[in-house]
């Protein structure tokens, strides 16, 4: 495997008595796309959210390019988070700022870029997701697919080492899914390290290096997309796949 860019070591997460993640070990190499599937409630979102400490892991550590994000001060944490781009199911664009403003904010306030630099970079990123012509549109004037692409641009503008996607297309109308997946494929081609939670199995077959099946807070099985989809070893994986395929 290439140099690990994201590494989860013995990650545990409990909410009170509920154990949501149990001893998760995962390595994502540089330029690798790891695709995570699993039933609702299996802990996929929590695992992603532990990576940038939106959720505080109960124990274990998360290494980003070798640096332990779980063992750093609040100030250092803000800096470390710049290495992790996160894309949410619900986009979460800032409704009071236009598209370019959304992409500029953290560049200026967290990264310390000048406004001119940040704007130039924002326009470049909006161009990359095919939305340069929408740079001064407010989020409310954009379709869901466009909003999600702006959200991806917002994350990319910070030059992250790893991108985390939590069901990026689940809130979209079916005809808008393709535009977001196309951006993700382009990212993958350009060598971005990606950890993607999604139900888009077709995308996984095309773009994923590895597929991970999670259930009940543990990684049940992992392997090449073809192997997982056509010949799953664990009973739970088989049951899940036959359910989602209907």
């Amino acid at each position: 495997m290439t140099r690990p860019m994201l590494e989860l070591v013995g990650l545990n997460k409990r909410f009170g008595d509920l154990t949501v993640l149990h001893d998760i070990h995962l390595r994502v190499g540089q330029g690798e796309l790891v695709f995570v599937i699993g039933p609702s409630g299996s802990g996929k979102s929590t695992m992603l959210r532990c990576c940038n400490r939106l959720e505080e892991p109960t124990s274990g550590s998360v290494l980003i390019d070798g640096a332990d994000i779980t063992a750093c001060s609040p100030r250092a944490l803000n800096k470390m988070r710049l290495n992790l781009g996160m894309v949410f199911q619900g986009f979460h664009l800032y409704p009071h700022m236009d598209a370019v403003g959304n992409v500029m904010l953290a560049q200026v306030k967290a990264l310390g870029r000048s406004k001119d630099e940040a704007r130039a970079r924002a326009l470049e990123m909006l161009d990359r997701v095919g939305l340069r012509h929408k740079s001064d549109a407010m989020p409310s004037a954009l379709s869901g697919g466009q909003q999600q692409r702006v959200a991806i641009a917002r994350a990319l503008a910070l030059d992250p080492k790893v991108m985390l996607f939590d069901e990026p297309t689940s809130a979209l109308d079916p005809e808008l899914v393709g535009s977001v997946l196309a951006v993700m494929k382009d990212l993958r081609t350009s060598g971005m390290t990606m950890l993607v939670v999604s139900h888009e199995m077709g995308f996984a077959r095309e773009a994923a290096d590895r597929v991970i099946f999670m259930d009940g807070g543990v990684i049940v099985e992992e392997g090449q997309p073809e192997a997982i989809f056509t010949n799953p070893q664990a009973e739970r994986t088989r049951a899940f796949l036959s359910r989602v395929r209907g």
Binding site: N52, L54, P74, R75, N78, K79, R81, L82, L84, M86, F88, G90, H92, L93, Y94, P95, H96, L105, A106, K109, A110, L111, A151, R154, A155, L158
Partner: peptide
């Protein structure tokens, strides 16, 4: 989610408060 978007992009609590939450 607005707070999470701010914090995930490396903004501190106070920055997220001022630039993301307060205007809304």
């Amino acid at each position: 989610g607005q707070w999470e978007a701010g914090r995930a992009t490396g903004l501190g609590f106070t920055q997220t408060l001022i630039h993301v939450a307060l205007p809304q």
